[in-house]
Write a protein that binds this DNA or RNA. Sequence first.
DNA 1: ATGTCTATTGCAACTAAGTTGCAAAGTGGA
DNA 2: TCCACTTTGCAACTTAGTTGCAATAGACAT
Lengths: 140, 140
Amino acid sequence: MSSNNLNVEHKLNEKSVKPTAVRNLVLKYLVERGKAFSVSDLEEAFDTIDKSTLFRTLKTFEQNDLVHTIDDGTGKLKYALCTSSCNSSTDHQHFHFTCQKCGETFCLPKTELPSIELPPNFAILESNLVLKGLCNDCNT
Amino acid sequence: MSSNNLNVEHKLNEKSVKPTAVRNLVLKYLVERGKAFSVSDLEEAFDTIDKSTLFRTLKTFEQNDLVHTIDDGTGKLKYALCTSSCNSSTDHQHFHFTCQKCGETFCLPKTELPSIELPPNFAILESNLVLKGLCNDCNT
DNA sequence: ATGTCTATTGCAACTAAGTTGCAAAGTGGA
DNA sequence: TCCACTTTGCAACTTAGTTGCAATAGACAT
């Protein structure tokens, strides 16, 4: 077993997620890929694993703070690995960037939100902050 | 013909959108409703108008700066009437707020974005900035 | 009024993301 | 080994949004 596999199993145990075959494979792929991904990306990478299993696996990962979701407006929910700085569920408030040409989605370093004029008695619990434009590769 | 109808026709002519029966009805509904809405909302309100027509109508409105879209993560694209302050297509960078309980989506007053550390050679063209939590009505 | 041209609308079929119920397979403990 | 519980695969389904095409309506010239 490679050190990568051990690493991944460790990550899963740390979050009390039982390290099954599928979960190990998926998490390993995510770590190695390093970018935000959709379920279709996973379906392509693992054509023997059923998509319902993939959705369920990711839901489990999300509930256990291994990944967070980003709705980048492409019609497919994207997932990104949580860093140590996004452990608590209130702490996903970083911006994301989606390239309109290649469709790739990136997490941006944590930035303080400006103070936002909310209507009275509104409470913010979460956010989905997506900037769109061109990434380095596509910005001619 | 009510003054509201004239108003709506005027709005359409102003943007060089031919004021057809469907467009007048839909735009009037939007103005009177005053909140962000989905195509399902429209389907409910106008059960005789085909959904493909509604989608196309909204696409036309969007292309002519009558509405802008918000992907609030509920799985349905929302639309909101453009105000005078969001005429230019680069100027939709205001935050939106979605109530996680009632699902209602609101435009927030325009707020400057913080300066965001982008990777080198990235360019921002658009944004989709959604805060989520509880609105006044649902915040017990 | 009549005919013509173009844009809009309705219809039906389709695509694709995501969900769900259920049975089969796997895993771990007594 | 046996039992209980969890995970996985399968198939069917739901729902948002799209597309091609034919029918219709509106504008305008004759």
